[in-house]
Design a protein around this nucleic acid. Structure first.
Length: 466
RNA sequence: GGUCCCAUCGUCUAGAGGCCUAGGACGUAGCCCUCUCAAGGCUAAAACACGGGUUCGAAUCCCGUUGGGACUGCCA
């Protein structure tokens, strides 16, 4: 039975890299009908906040990455770590270290200055008596010879020399446990079968393997995912722009689009680019996860988002776009719109909108009572030359009872034929008059959806403007 | 510095020794469609980091070089 976990530390919002790690864990669990566990690694009490925990959970929920157990919090489990630490201490697999953080830092700097490895020198390893007046940290005794092999599901067989391994601190002098210890204890305690995480943890793995063994447990499978980098090929961070998942929600991205983008960073299935969540679950395997880091490419994400919008049912987009209509101040909170009508409007706009924000802003000229002109558009098309066309269209539409696109088109065509001019000569000025912009969906559809009353009012206003 | 990982178009990737004249996607450019803008269709430019091996044959296997990344905390 597969049991996997996503274990973020709440020192920031759920970011792109974390989301992808969560996604791959989730996919592996779902593919294998296993269990996906959410565990909050908040042992660093100074940097972890309640707010970030909520934010991470919000991000996971938004991406539809549902978990089966948790969220567990490591701060609720300090007694467990204490117990395991005592066990190691009793078995002399760990020892008390009385060196102060300042002393350690100084020695580290000295070693570095001399070009040596900044490794703990092991001076407290064989201490017989406690040093009075100092609170000790607990260090784990790493083996000092031999080698440790990690058989990684993605990277393959990796060999580490044990001489490189440090006697790492598992319990701080204040009694709180540290990361490399808590992960192992928790993964053991929660029966994790596969540890799927970023390859920034690859170097921690041999250390953790020794802790598993010291504790007397079997080592799980490991799968180390390649990193996600920014355009400058350094680790993705805030200076590369939006990195939190929630920021993408706010920018009008669809969760499935982000998931689709993220999964293709390091994973592929032949030439297929667009996947439903069910397809991802069905096809996912470590066999087609790549080994190399990937650069995050916002343009491709934007394209995928546009594809997801195009392929969405308008009635679904109605619900998704509502919060953005409010946020963009196109409607007021609680304002009620005819959903059927809104669906029709969205249908004309969905293949022209790359984000929900763009969609909301285009919807403006359908919804608003009045419109503002784009100045360049106004100068170019609302002038003496277009006056007669506008007037003619207005007059003809006034007498049109069956106010639907096909009938509106006939009105335009008869004007065009009568004067032997191009449709564009009539359509463009009307477009500016109705939408205020140079570009819009087909003008006949726009007029139908805007409706007779508002159309005539806007045409009159345009004529007056000239 | 040390350890570990990685290396195909600008970017994401296909590629499991001959199917490779290296395929797809984003982006870019052009054309078509067209009331505008999109969407869609077609086309184009664009890559096996370098050097050695192994082999009849290497993008693919091995070694080295170079380049990039991660770790090296009483952070996770």
């Amino acid at each position: 039975m597969v049991r996997v976990r996503f274990a973020p530390s709440p020192t920031g919002h759920l970011h792109i890299g974390g989301a992808r790690t969560a996604l791959f864990n989730w996919l592996y669990a779902r593919h294998n009908k296993g269990t996906f566990i959410l565990r909050i690694e908040d042992t660093d009490r100074t940097r972890s906040t309640e707010e970030y925990i909520h934010s991470i959970i919000e991000g996971m929920k938004w991406l539809n990455l549902d978990w089966d157990e948790g969220p567990y919090r490591q701060t609720d489990r300090f007694d467990v770590y204490r117990r395991y630490a005592d066990k190691l201490l009793n078995e002399e697999k760990a020892y008390c270290c009385y060196c102060s953080p300042e002393e350690l830092e100084q020695r580290r700097q000295e070693a570095l200055a001399q070009g040596k490895s900044p490794k703990y020198d092991g001076r407290c390893r064989n201490l017989k008596e406690p040093i009075p007046g100092r609170k000790p940290a607990v260090r784990f005794k790493m083996p000092q010879k031999g080698e440790t092999v990690v058989n990684d599901l993605i990277k393959g067989r990796i060999v580490f020399e044990n001489t490189q391994l440090d006697d790492l601190i598992i319990m701080r002098s204040d009694g709180t446990p540290t990361y490399n210890f808590t992960v192992v204890v928790d993964d053991v305690d929660m029966n994790i079968t596969h540890v799927i995480r970023g390859d920034d943890h690859l170097n921690n793995t041999p250390k953790q393997i020794h802790i598993y063994r010291a504790l007397g447990y079997e080592v799980p499978f490991f799968a180390h995912l390649p990193m996600i980098l920014g355009a400058d090929k350094t680790r993705l961070s805030k200076r590369h722009g939006a990195t939190s998942v929630i920021a993408y929600k706010e920018m009008g991205y669809l969760p499935d689009a982000l998931v689709n983008y993220l999964v293709r960073l390091g994973w592929s299935y032949g030439d297929q680019e667009v996947f439903t969540p069910d397809e991802l679950i069905k096809y996912f395997s470590f066999d087609n996860v790549g080994k190399s880091a990937a650069v995050f490419n916002p343009e491709k994400l934007l394209w995928l988002n546009s594809q997801y919008i195009i392929n969405s049912m308008p009635e679904n987009l109605v619900e998704l776009v509502m919060p953005f209509l409010v946020k963009e101040k196109i409607i007021t909170e609680g304002q009620i719109l005819d959903k059927e009508w809104l669906s029709k409007a969205i249908f004309t706009l969905k293949e022209r909108s790359k984000t929900l924000i763009e969609l909301a802003n285009s919807l403006k000229y359908y919804i608003a009572e009045d419109i503002e002109y784009d100045l360049k558009a106004k100068d170019k098309f609302l002038n003496e030359k277009s006056l007669s066309s506008l007037t003619e269209v207005k007059d003809a539409l006034k007498t049109l009872d069956n106010f639907i696109a096909t009938e509106i088109e006939k009105v335009f065509m008869s004007i065009v034929e009568k004067h032997n001019i191009k449709l564009g000569n009539v359509a463009q000025p009307v477009r500016i008059a109705i939408t205020g912009r140079k570009e819009s969906p087909g003008i006949f559809d726009v007029i139908e959806i805007v409706g007779k009353e508002k159309t005539l009012r806007r045409l009159e206003k345009a004529i007056k403007t000239i």
